[in-house]
Write a protein that binds this DNA or RNA. Structure first.
Lengths: 203, 203
DNA sequence: TTTTCGACTAATTTTATATATCGGTCGATT
DNA sequence: AATCGACCGATATATAAAATTAGTCGAAAA
């Protein structure tokens, strides 16, 4: 129900409205009508911009994922301290997790029951994340901070470990939603894991 | 359909039959009749030994859990090498996981959708497991192997991390059942986690 | 040409209902 | 002490009807 800018800005406005509605009802229970209504436009018009609901949802998630990747990428530069970058990575990764969890509102414990395209979405992101972490590790090696033989293996491992911690947190959550306390505990565990990992690769 | 020994041995026989059926159909789809038939007895007779299905299932799981705990407990003795005990713990823990997964045949990703009593069962076991790990850590301190300030915190953390790795493995499994390859990968990750953990607490 | 939308369809989800199965009990029997 | 047939109520399953919703299309507005 607001005046809409044209072309470039329009996609942004739609994504924002979609994001708002997904956060409100979750992926499954948000209808294309809900989103269109939020924009004050007809449902058919939405399909002019996005080929399907999955496409729209993917764009919303991807936007945040890319933002995360770029933010970390931004601070990976020669002579930057790899250890502190890893800590920033851990912190920002938690924020991304919170965001995605909020937009999905997956019932039960996760991805097994969710749609295949969501699984694919996260699998693809995982690959990028591993590459990102690997580049941090390589930076650390260049700086003489770390001593690692197989950077890819180590990057995959730490990503897997972090994912595991997120899963445990999600599983232990009270009342089908993670509380502030739950996030705090998860944050602690992620910090410990990163610390332990750093300790094991430090020169 | 076999001759049954009396009293003490009877419980064992029932547990074995129940275990066989649970492994075949999983918790939800195994009926009390299935188990009774396996024993060549009437369903009502089963209720003479176990008050309810949950009770029976719990007994089956508990038996294996206790066996695991005792096996590790057995090798925790003064002057025993704590590092190698941690490695044994990791290995046997995987075996227990495989066993429990097999008996549950939980659909989807896990405990969130399963019955509350199962959740409780695993929560209670988790406490015992943390205590077990903590006693290994204390042994390591006594031996002068480890240097840790808060043993309970560290024990909880490593247990959480290992649980996370199991969850990831379960989530990534192909075809609603973990393959030999999946277990191998999980085993590798658990070893790495333990190795990293040890590295971080080593004197 | 670009963008919007009402009207429509096919597919999915929800609802309602009937049926079957299963957990658990009880009284009788061995 | 141990077993079991017969039974009950609750839960799960199967089926069909009704309601939503994803996605399409052709026309109209900009």
């Amino acid at each position: 129900m607001e005046i809409i800018e044209k072309e470039e800005g329009k996609l942004e406005v739609i994504l924002k409205a979609a994001q708002k509605k997904f956060a409100e009802f979750g992926l499954a229970k948000t209808t294309m009508n809900d989103i269109a209504a939020e924009l004050g436009m007809g449902k058919a018009s939405l399909y002019y911009y996005f080929t399907c609901k999955e496409n729209l949802y993917e764009a919303v998630i991807r936007k945040e994922q890319d933002h995360f990747l770029q933010e970390i990428q931004k601070i990976i530069k020669p002579k930057a301290n790899a250890v502190s970058i890893l800590r920033v990575y851990s912190k920002k990764r938690l924020t991304l997790f919170e965001y995605c969890l909020n937009l999905a509102k997956l019932n039960g414990d996760g991805m097994a029951t969710c749609m295949p395209f969501v699984k694919k979405l996260y699998t693809e992101f995982n690959k990028k994340e591993v590459q990102l972490v690997e580049s941090i590790l390589r930076l650390g090696i260049q700086n003489g901070e770390f001593e690692i033989s197989n950077t890819n293996e180590q990057a995959e491992f730490i990503c897997t470990m972090m994912m595991g911690l997120r899963m445990v947190a999600k599983n232990r959550m009270t009342e089908s939603q993670m509380s502030k306390e739950d996030y705090k505990t998860l944050n602690n565990n992620m910090d410990k894991a990163i610390q332990m990992f750093i300790c094991s690769i430090l020169v």
